[in-house]
Design a protein around this nucleic acid. Structure first.
Lengths: 240, 240, 240, 240
DNA sequence: CATGAATGAGCATTCATTCAT
DNA sequence: GATGAATGAATGCTCATTCAT
């Protein structure tokens, strides 16, 4: 008969899984998935090798469960914002998305490096499952938002919303890839607080309806980062 | 006594190295560097395992010598265009750069996947050497170009040229990453011929001086891809 | 204070041991001793892994205690028949022995397979103990019976009784081995009801004194199974 | 370019395979297939662990190829004798078969123990393949021989030839199993030179047509082993 | 230079056994 | 007594590298 309640046991199990996953993220990031050994992970987690197999089927299984733990919260935040009743102003949502990307990557630098190096090598089905978990679907949310703004005449209607939506994340991604994943030694870093407003600014200018100047357009005339973006960043802060 | 002249021998050696590197690129791309075996490479190259060690110190050495010959031609092309005496029109140079990124990645899909999965795991010195070979310094060329255009009043002067330059390559990055590196099964592909003009369009709008409307600005009112972008694409063709 | 009397506790313990041994026999037979895991046995017994160690010292100990309860009843029956006051007719005792071999093997098919695969690999002392439990000593009973029949002139006296006795069990052995232990897929089975009378028939003819024709000799001229063998089979039925 | 001719290389490979198989037979016999380690086999063969995998796919593959090497020659001899143009006399062929069984088992005692312990645990397809290789089909040859003798009136026609044929091998098998496979410590051994003639004698008497006394029947009246069986044994000798 | 068999360190995974609860 | 998580030694197998031919 179990000495612990089912509930307590579940909690303990979850705790252990977290402990192992955290260790795995660190080790995988340092040596890469293939070069990291189960011994490494066990040592990092402070447990015996065999114990890992009480919580995960095999080494691959560790990889599969990594992002769920770390990425889900911030991704859900983006999604929640996207489907809010009152759609936020364009510069707000864009700033929010970019800031979240930055948060996700900088807070999980190691993990991101693991995924970048491991996902392209997975077999097709696993890779598909993985990509499904990634923020790709956030693109659809953005696409819908853009389409709506095109209908109301705020955004230019002559551009393909699907393409326009998928252009945006890359603008920040380049910085993140180079600065966080590649980390070239001795390269001058760019501060995201300075970069993100420029990204939002350029992107917005590019897609706003020229003859329907909005508050945003006008505001942009000032050089300093707008009050709004600062506000948005504050909103994004609750992300873990 | 040597049957061949020193020169002929050198040529043969170089040929063999090429043969092995080509095989290595294919194999590494398919299975990843760590999972690919020397036997795989040897088989793909049509030689014996041991023979590889007559041309490369070890497995790592294969990786180190991989990219040069693949990346060099297109990179040199970009560089050449950037330093041309009469700098081309903004939309032309932008289209040219983007098209070259697409060419490099799509023509070396497999190799790019290798680099993506292997480079972040290299030790610092090797990684530095690698990144050096990457087209990152093309950003500096673009940065200089932008700075020049800011001075002549064509581009907005209120933006940091360094940041602005580094934003551009990312705009195509998302498409390339997802479509060429991740290759999620069953995802609808976007045609680069449709995507690149949109990228150029949005980026240019974002950084052009608002009160100095150029030909490009006006042209964009039409939905169809402009003649100019088509022209530019033709120019980019000479890339190997 | 004990809730149960010592007696009741003992009974419970015995019950548990039986439960575990039954599970072990099934599991060992299916996968072989070495490939079967304690977890397999525990699951089959419906208890926790650790609990097994409250009843058996270790895995080997399970094997050691396996056969006794399974083999004992039929073996004792053979023995009882052999030492009966009025020795039965030759064809009856032979049929009885053969039928018991068949019963033992077919009713404990799995267990027999375990023993076949495990016993030859045991260390000498354990193996000796095991063989001791096997019906080998039944051969001695048969040997004595034969010797007695030789003295009364019923069986030929020119043959070594020890050898003659040990030839008999093998006559059914081939069928049992192939059909029950090896179980080659898709092989036509022979019905023991048809096989055993032939065995008795041939063996008896072989050892009966030629110039002292018995009822049995004459009966065999008919093709149908004799009433006698049927009778014998009925007698063998009480076997558990 | 290969330094050795294809032929020489093949010979070397075969030699190595033999070397490994011999070592495997010894080790498997001593510890059983499951408990024997590849390390054990390698050590016994005097080579490195990894080298084994240059000649055999995996551990199971070693088992699969064991009997082909050791059993084939004697089995082929039996078969050859069975299909000879002039069918030998009954006692000759029976003695020949039994003697061959004895030779096979005693000369490959260890290997037989391996097979007895490993075959029943194989998966169905492999097991089927295995049994196919075993002397089971020799039974069919014997069955045909018996049927022929029944037609010519030498053997009794009232018995099922298939059953009669399958009874015979077990008569010797029992001795072989107990004395060579089980090897119970301290048991008195029976000399096969004394056992086999008794087996042939009893079996033949059991199946010979009673009212058609042959030379064999009459000869049996003498106690000593007949000249014929001695002759046969000599004939069986050429078996390796 | 080419070859490919030989090597043995290294790894993922299993599993009998222990022991805190 | 019962439980099942924890342990870590043990094993089959891989693969980069060497080297005799």
């Amino acid at each position: 008969m179990p000495r612990l309640t089912v509930h307590a046991r579940r909690a303990l199990t979850q705790e252990r899984r977290q402990q192992i996953l955290t260790a795995a993220a660190t080790v995988f990031a340092a040596k890469g998935f293939d070069r990291a050994t189960i011994r490494d992970v066990a040592r990092a987690a402070g447990i015996a090798e065999g114990s890992i197999y009480n919580y995960f089927r095999d080494k691959q299984d560790l990889l599969v469960h990594l992002p769920r733990q770390f990425f889900l919260p911030p991704i859900q935040a983006v999604q929640a914002a996207a489907v809010a009743d009152a759609p936020p102003a364009p510069d707000q949502i864009l700033q929010f998305i970019a800031q979240n990307m930055v948060n996700i990557v900088t807070q999980n630098r190691e993990l991101v490096r693991v995924l970048f190096t491991a996902v392209p090598l997975m077999d097709e089905t696993l890779r598909a499952e993985y990509i499904q978990q990634m923020p790709l679907y956030a693109m659809e949310a953005l696409e819908n938002y853009i389409r709506a703004m095109q209908k109301t005449g705020v955004f230019r209607a002559d551009l393909d919303a699907a393409i326009v939506a998928r252009i945006y994340p890359g603008m920040a991604l380049f910085f993140l890839l180079v600065q966080e994943v590649l980390q070239p030694p001795g390269m001058t870093r760019f501060d995201y607080a300075r970069v993100l407003p420029v990204i939002v600014e350029i992107y917005l200018r590019g897609i706003l309806q020229a003859d329907a100047p909005t508050r945003q357009r006008r505001r942009r005339r000032k050089k300093a980062p707008s009050r709004k973006t600062r506000t948005v960043r504050r909103r994004a802060q609750p992300l873990k």
